[in-house]
């Protein structure tokens, strides 16, 4: 019942299936000209190489199929992988395209799944034929409610939380983390290796803080005065904690 009771020593389960929601960029194609796609994709990525390196990606070919434009899924995957993108799914594909995707071990998603997060994904959608003048490196995720024990939150850019992060909660961001409340849980910034990432919070009582894989646990934080805004950043692979 309580989490503690799971610590019984005999026969601990080695695995567990859990359901989680992730926010993943979707690439919506509106042309099937592979040369143009490759060219425009590279132009996009040059604007924000850090953001796209090793980024998972879901491919959306619904628009193409509406216009009866077929596309070679295998070649397209090659083009996407070249600059470091990691395609993890396709949606809106034809029967034949889905079959090809599965043969390449790319999962097929229904077009409806993810509708609820369509708003959030819109900003991250890359649409090659409509070159915008500027792309921000990564979006900022703004959260106005507390993050409670047992909840986990991932942001592909900066993460701003206007409430507390409870003990037993975990927040992760590829960029910076700002918490305008007490941090009691775990906060991991720069999770894709960004050593410039920082964590800010108005009261540090964390279980764990981490920047680009370097971490401090609750024990290391005992000496830090509470009830004061602090910032954390990396210096020579060590997390420095300073009053703001």
């Amino acid at each position: 019942m309580s989490p503690d009771s799971q610590k019984t020593p005999y026969n601990p389960p080695a695995l567990e299936f859990k359901s989680s929601t992730f926010s993943v960029p979707v690439l919506v194609l509106s042309s099937n000209d592979l040369a143009i796609i490759e060219q425009q994709l590279q132009a996009k990525i040059r604007l924000a190489p850090e953001f796209f390196r090793n980024s998972p990606l879901v491919l959306d070919v619904q628009e193409l199929n509406k216009k009866d434009l077929d596309i070679d899924i295998a070649e397209l995957m090659e083009i996407l992988r070249k600059p470091g993108l990691l395609p993890i799914g396709i949606r809106g594909g034809s029967l034949n395209q889905n079959k090809k995707a599965l043969a390449l071990q790319i999962p097929v998603y229904s077009i409806n799944s993810g509708n609820t997060v369509a708003e959030a994904q819109k900003q991250k959608t890359i649409t090659p034929p409509a070159p915008e003048p500027k792309t921000s490196t990564a979006t900022t995720t703004l959260i106005t409610h507390p993050i409670r024990s047992g909840q986990r939150l991932y942001a592909s850019g900066d993460l701003v939380i206007l409430a507390q992060v409870s003990a037993g909660a975990e927040i992760l961001a590829e960029g910076n983390i700002h918490i305008y409340g007490t941090l009691r849980g775990r906060a991991l910034a720069g999770v894709q290796g960004n050593t410039e990432a920082r964590i800010f919070c108005s009261d540090l009582q964390a279980e764990l803080i981490s920047i680009a894989g370097n971490y401090k646990i609750s024990e290391d934080l005992q000496a830090i005065a509470r009830n004061k805004p602090v910032q954390m950043y990396l210096q020579d692979h060590t997390i420095i904690i300073k009053d703001i």
């Binding site: 309580s2 409610h145 409670r148 909840q151 037993g168 909660a169």
Partner: peptide
């Protein structure tokens, strides 16, 4: 322990209820 479990339940209320699922 009771406070911690309540916090957990609050997280579930905020994410797994009908109101949460239907936005």
């Amino acid at each position: 322990s009771s406070v911690r479990d309540s916090d957990r339940m609050l997280g579930i209320l905020a994410s797994k209820s009908r109101r949460a699922e239907q936005n």
